[in-house]
Design a protein around this nucleic acid. Structure first.
Length: 800
RNA sequence: GCGGAAGUGGCGGAACGGCAGACGCGCUAGCCUCAGGAGCUAGUUGGAGCAAUCCAGUGGGGGUUCAAAUCCCCCCUUCCGCACCA
């Protein structure tokens, strides 16, 4: 149901914009590769291709029954070679640019299933399928160098004015930029003495101003130099065992929660390049190998983690920054103070203030050749290798002579071979297909082996929006000219679950394709709407919870229009909603009410040749016209500017209520059919006013309830369908009220309401307010201090 | 721990410095009906009053303002994201 909501929102926007005269591209594609289909194959033996195509057929039928106006002629499915060929094409472009590369990296490995698991398949540190504790394995994996674009991706966020702030913030945090410095700590040889040139540990810090308080160095267990220290130690095996234990412990504990800070002394020391003193080097389980340099300078006085570590192992603590007037003593410290302030105990820098001192110290480090300013990102390169079948083959082969060889463009696509048995065991299923694996090297003609990993399915979804511009192109992913016409995407909606990965990857791909010369913009999605989830009994609908509301059932029971209308009416799109059948009844009733009302008038006011509304209206007609135009204004703004589709619907409901009242006042029925040529003008005017209101209503209703609206439109005698209709034009002159009700506040409380001509002069209004009977009872015997007229208008009187 | 969002009738929600509760659901009464899980009309925040009207009221407490659901500060609750990022 959540997806259905998303599609309806998009359809309302698309239909509305079409009526507004825009050329709208509203396409649909199937993100068809991925684990669910493969897991089903492992369980049931049905081939992923079969189940995927079945699913597509079923869902397509559902979307069509919902009346979502997709450009089906541009439909695409990522599992088809016509599409994934260009995943491979883009991969090759990335490879050429050094943006796709291979390195060893750790993965989650289930020893029982003999396979690699994605992070989300690891539940509480164990395999989701068999419950076996997950191990870490080092495998050669392909990566996309997204970190190359980290700065651009961060800066680009500032231009995304029509994105929810929340998503921008999440991306900003995810990218995680830190400004700091890389500092070299020379390593003292095992037996003591002067450090050898070039033998040093590099650390990254954002707080170089605290470096005089750096009393030890901490290494990640994975840090390369730890091996060497072990070899050079008295008992290499003992040290290696401790490291191995840390690495294993670390993993399990990370997945379940917090881990205790632990570490051990390597027995070695390094020189703090600022103080010149030798400080101990320890290994600590909380230092991350993947971030920075995998080594840190520990400043226990000013970093809470280092503080806890120092206290636990009785390592020295030294204060280097003072924030208040009084110097704190090391003995009295109960926690680290990470605030910026005045640098103390810091040699020549003592007395200088952050942030200036940070600049000075970095400059000095650079001049002395012991470090440099550096920017670090939390963002890591994107590992795209999956040891799975149902995905895009990575277009690379391995030749004994030529090494890693990209598949030539003219040999694309590298087709996914048909694998018939799925066990879920062993390495990549593709490795079990010799006809696939064994091939010839395009460079030397000798034997070569194909890469058997497939791509992460996020690759598929990182550029599909561009493919819609030119979905049948066989030569390139899309024609740049066509992309330039349609792109970037003006309106993009989806769940918040895509806030980081999908949207970040798409932004990355867009920039890569820009650098390749295929697109001429940086940001793929101009306006983003993150729609809320649809809940049932307070929980996300899911098969395992058994709380799924099947859209098919609702379509069966109510039809598409009430379902569409209800889903739009129940809450603003970005809010999550609790599913409620009773509300759907209400939407159904509303549509019946509209039908009945239009049906009632259709014969009288239908057909061609109804004149435009004239000026000599009865008060009732005048009111209806005003309501009509006020509704046009509100509905237009609600859909186009605010995307508050729920209030757009409620405005339409108000107009319908008004029409019922109007009909009531028109002698309980329709005036007799009046021929435009010989009719009485008052009747003609009534007809014209009704026609204006009902035409506008039907057109504005059509994005929400297209089937009903189309039928009504035809019944009203419009020869052309709604696709040729125009969104009604707002006339400010008509919408303007003749009279307005002005509240009068006395000391902040509304004590009276005056009905006055619109546009009344402030002085006259003040006069009227002060002479009003109800107002007088509240101000007699008191002193009027102030009378002001606020926009609205509204009168505010202050008395004492 | 850090960051973010949100707390409004019995319910979904409107209003986002200017008439709190639009619109809908539910409920109540009346009309129409053989009947109604149909339709129409009216009512529906709490308290006082026959009534006009008055008092209180947007999680709690303070503040800014002629005027606060709306802006600012503190607190409570719920949800979400990140979680040793040096």
């Amino acid at each position: 149901m959540g997806h259905v909501r998303n599609y309806i929102i998009g359809d309302v926007m698309a239909r509305m914009k079409r009526l507004r005269g825009f050329n709208v591209l509203h396409p649909f594609g199937w993100d068809a590769f991925g684990l669910p289909a493969e897991n089903a194959a492992i369980k049931s033996g049905i081939h992923p291709e079969t189940s995927t195509l079945d699913n597509i057929a079923h869902m397509k039928g559902q979307l069509q029954r919902l009346g979502i106006s997709y450009a089906w002629e541009r439909e695409l499915a990522t599992c088809l070679p016509e599409y994934y060929k260009f995943n491979q094409w883009i991969f090759l472009k990335m490879f050429e640019r050094g943006l796709a590369y291979r390195r060893r990296s750790s993965v989650n490995w289930c020893p029982s299933c003999q396979t690699v698991l994605a992070n989300e398949q690891v539940v509480d540190g164990a395999c989701w399928r068999c419950g076996t504790p997950v191990e870490t394995r080092e495998l050669e994996q392909w990566f996309f160098r997204i970190t190359e674009y980290a700065d651009q991706l961060l800066k680009g966020l500032d231009t995304l004015e029509a994105w929810p702030e929340k998503v921008v913030l999440m991306q900003r945090n995810w990218i995680g930029r830190s400004e700091g410095a890389r500092i070299t700590f020379p390593v003292v040889p095992a037996g003591g003495g002067t450090p050898a040139a070039g033998d040093a540990i590099e650390i990254f810090t954002t707080r170089i101003d605290t470096i005089y308080g750096a009393t030890f160095v901490l290494l990640a267990p994975e840090h390369a130099i730890v091996h060497r220290f072990a070899n050079e130690s008295a008992d290499p095996k003992a040290m290696r065992d401790r490291v191995a234990r840390f690495r294993a412990l670390d993993r399990g504990a990370r997945l379940t929660g917090a881990i205790d800070k632990e570490g051990f002394d390597t027995g070695r020391t390094a020189i703090n390049p600022f103080t010149g003193e030798a400080v101990p080097i320890w290994v600590a389980n909380f230092v991350l190998a993947e971030y920075g340099t995998g080594a840190i300078m520990a400043v226990p006085a000013h970093d809470q983690r280092d503080f806890e570590f120092a206290r636990k192992y009785q390592l020295p603590i030294r204060i280097a920054v003072q924030t208040g007037d009084e110097a704190a003593s090391v003995e009295s410290l109960t926690e680290a103070s990470s605030a910026y302030g005045r640098v103390v105990n810091s040699g020549p820098y003592t007395g200088q203030e952050a942030p200036a001192v940070i600049k000075t110290m970095i400059a000095d480090a650079e001049r002395r050749g012991v470090g440099a300013g550096e920017i670090q990102y939390r963002l890591k390169d994107w590992g795209i290798s999956r040891q799975r079948y149902w995905g895009t083959p990575i277009p690379v082969l391995y030749c004994d002579k030529d090494g890693v060889v990209p598949v030539p463009y003219e040999q694309l696509p590298v087709r996914l071979p048909t694998v018939t048995t799925f066990t879920g065991r062993g390495d990549s299923p593709l490795a079990q297909v010799p006809e696939f694996v064994n091939t010839t090297c395009p460079t030397c003609g000798g034997p070569a082996r194909r890469e058997t990993d497939t791509m992460d399915t996020f690759v598929d979804s990182s550029w599909y929006y561009l493919r819609f511009c030119d979905p049948t192109n066989t030569e390139q992913p899309f024609d740049p000219a066509k992309a330039a016409y349609w792109m970037p995407v003006d309106f993009y909606s989806g769940g918040v679950e895509h806030a980081i990965l999908h949207l970040l990857y798409s932004r990355f791909f867009t920039r890569v394709l820009r650098d390749v010369g295929l697109v001429n913009f940086d940001e793929p999605f101009t306006r983003l709407l993150t729609q809320g989830m649809v809940l049932k009994d307070g929980h996300v609908m899911s098969k395992s919870k058994g709380n799924v509301v099947d859209p098919d059932d609702m379509l069966e029971k109510y039809g598409a229009d009430p379902l569409r209308l209800y889903v739009m009416f129940v809450a603003p799109p970005e809010k999550e909603v609790e599913w409620n059948d009773a509300g759907l009844d209400g939407s159904f009733r509303f549509l019946v009410r509209v039908w009945r009302m239009v049906d009632h008038w259709a014969e009288t006011i239908g057909g061609e040749g109804i004149p435009a509304c004239g000026d000599d209206c009865t008060p009732a007609e005048r009111d209806l016209r005003r309501k009509t135009h006020e509704t046009i204004r509100r509905v237009t703004a609600d859909i186009e500017d605010r995307m508050h589709l729920n209030t757009a619907v409620s405005s339409l409901m108000e107009l319908v209520n008004e029409l019922y009242k109007f009909s009531e006042g028109t002698a309980h029925g329709a005036p007799a059919r009046v021929e435009p040529s010989g009719g009485r003008t008052d009747r003609l005017q009534t007809i014209a006013v009704l026609r204006e209101a009902i035409d506008a209503l039907v057109v504005m209703l059509s994005p929400f309830a297209p089937h009903t609206a189309e039928e009504l439109w035809a019944n009203l005698g419009h020869a052309d369908g709604l696709s040729n209709a125009e969104w009604p034009a707002f006339d400010a002159e008509v919408a303007k009220a003749d009279e307005v009700v002005v509240p009068v506040q006395i000391n902040g409380k509304v004590r009276a309401r005056l009905t006055v001509p619109a546009g009344i002069a402030d002085d006259d209004l003040r006069e009227l307010a002060l002479s009003d009977a109800a107002v007088r009872t509240h101000i007699t015997g008191k002193t009027v201090r102030k009378v002001m007229i606020a926009k609205g208008p509204l009168v505010s009187i202050v008395v004492q």
